[in-house]
């Protein structure tokens, strides 16, 4: 008996499941009791996550073998959690669902952006949105926490200081251009992900209408906000470049104050706006594998346009890292436990 909390990961063979395993196998206060994958039941975890070879002898188990645990992570494709949430809730008092199923509180907003009715709308109000920088206090007493959209996370972290400081122009839109890595698409393949098609491409895959927009609308209270997605030559990483017009008279020092007010106390958000050094603005390259989000900004005083940037690892701060951070908060652990890897340089 280790005294550690028992964790189960349902959907452990995908990329976010693999990241959860990488983080939780070395977390000081939990024990990974089960890694569930219907497709790979019976196989060693390292068959799908080769970085974990010789670090665990855990084998995937089938979904029917799910046992009671203290915290259940759901890392299944969109749409599956909402259909089985009553079933899952019988196995654990705390659930963190990484999918998009429980991110939105309003079923009408869900239907508008996902084009279908929610299968368990009565559960939407039970979940707390999974970004600690926005919902830390609510997480402390939550039993159920959602995942976060990786693109939404980058957009939200880029814009949060401007929203909290009430600096945005009241009648002008906010446009967020997002450059994304290929791992956002998950472990499943499709003709577009075939190497000759994907390699070296700069692919606009959702110039308008991306679903993560709904999370920015909900969490920041913005309504005239627009996201555009471009897949670039990265495996991990998202860079959000938000273009926002500010109220007249806002100075760059006002922006420094706003960003410090939002992030000075945040363990995983760093302001990167440097006149020296090699990386002077946020760049997802150096964040691979880390839970850090780097944010920066520049102000065009002629036009009043602020360009706010946020870089993350989509699988970490944009998914599994935030989920583990949420678990730490829910369980009263040190918020940074298991998440202190600073990334690699060079990489």
């Amino acid at each position: 008996m280790t005294g550690r909390l028992r964790i189960a990961i349902f959907g452990a063979s995908g990329y976010t499941g693999g990241e959860l395993l990488r983080l939780l196998l070395f977390h000081p206060q939990v024990e990974v009791a089960q890694a569930i994958s219907q497709s790979y039941a019976g196989e060693f975890v390292h068959s799908q996550h080769p970085n974990l070879r010789k670090r665990t002898q855990l084998q995937f188990t089938s979904r029917d073998a799910l046992k009671e645990c203290d915290v259940l992570f759901l890392a299944v494709p969109h749409g599956q959690s909402q259909k089985q949430i009553d079933h899952f809730a019988r196995f654990a008092p705390k659930i963190i669902d990484l999918s998009a199923d429980f991110r939105l509180r309003d079923s009408a907003l869900y239907e508008r952006w996902y084009g279908e009715k929610h299968a368990a709308p009565e559960w939407l109000g039970k979940f707390v949105y999974g970004l600690p920088e926005l919902q830390r206090e609510a997480m402390k007493t939550a039993s159920y926490v959602s995942g976060v959209g990786c693109n939404a996370t980058a957009a939200n972290l880029a814009l949060l200081p401007l929203v909290r400081a009430d600096l945005l122009h009241p009648t002008k839109p906010v446009v967020v251009d997002l450059k994304t890595g290929s791992s956002e698409g998950g472990a499943a393949v499709n003709p577009g992900s075939h190497h000759p098609e994907k390699s070296h491409s700069v692919r606009s895959y959702a110039p308008t209408g991306h679903r993560h927009t709904a999370e920015v609308i909900q969490e920041l209270g913005l309504h005239d906000v627009h996201l555009s997605m471009t897949a670039v030559e990265l495996v991990r990483g998202v860079l959000a470049t938000a273009h926002a017009f500010l109220k007249p008279g806002v100075t760059e020092k006002d922006l420094w104050r706003a960003y410090r007010a939002a992030y000075a106390g945040e363990p995983f958000v760093r302001i990167v706006k440097d006149k020296g050094g090699i990386h002077r603005m946020p760049d997802p390259k150096i964040l691979a594998g880390s839970n850090f989000a780097d944010v920066g900004f520049e102000l065009d005083t002629e036009s009043g346009r602020a360009v706010s940037l946020a870089a993350i690892d989509n699988l970490m701060k944009g998914a599994s890292g935030s989920a583990v951070q949420a678990m730490n908060i829910m369980c009263g652990f040190e918020e940074t436990a298991g998440l202190e890897f600073p990334g690699l340089h060079p990489i």
Binding site: K253, W256, R257, K273, D274, K275, G276, G277, R280
Partner: peptide
């Protein structure tokens, strides 16, 4: 003076010396 970040200077700092802000990197 650039970003309003806190700056701690050594006791032996002298006029004409160049120091660097740890927050914004300005000389």
């Amino acid at each position: 003076p650039e970003c309003e970040g806190a700056l701690t200077l050594g006791a032996d700092v002298i006029a004409g010396e160049i120091v660097v802000c740890g927050d914004c990197g300005v000389d």
